[in-house]
Design a protein around this nucleic acid. Structure first.
Length: 105
DNA sequence: CCGTTGACCCTTC
DNA sequence: AGAAGGGCCAACG
């Protein structure tokens, strides 16, 4: 198994529990490079199906651009279906649903 | 090997 | 408080 950055991100995203959300910066930090948040996005862009990339959003809790898996509306529907409360501003309550990154992994 | 690109984040005006 | 710009790191050609 290669230790490539993108692949490592796939594992992290796949470990995000339902009803929780993670940010690109957080995944980048767990991947080993706190500043490589862009690489995380690029990795998700190439991520295979089955990956809950819809649980990944901005540091502010806002969804990514329309270039995402299909559209921000889809992401909102998916997150709501996961049990993630949305704010009237159209953002996710990241301070409540942010993935606490279990060190037990 | 060097240059370019990218689903971001942070600092400053 | 809101908006704009630059910087960062890794993968790909």
């Amino acid at each position: 198994m290669e230790d490539t950055f993108p692949k490592r991100v796939y594992q992290l995203v796949a470990r995000i529990p339902r009803g929780k959300v993670a940010t690109y910066g957080q995944l980048a930090l767990l991947a080993g490079s706190p500043r490589a948040s862009r690489i995380v996005g690029a990795a998700l862009a190439k991520a295979p199906a089955g990956l809950p990339c819809h649980r990944v959003l901005y540091r502010d809790g806002s969804l990514c651009c329309q270039k995402a898996f299909g559209g921000p509306e889809i992401q909102r529907q998916l997150l709501e279906a996961e049990g993630v409360p949305f704010l009237p501003d159209g953002r996710v309550d990241v301070k409540v649903c942010l993935w606490e990154t279990p060190e037990d992994a």
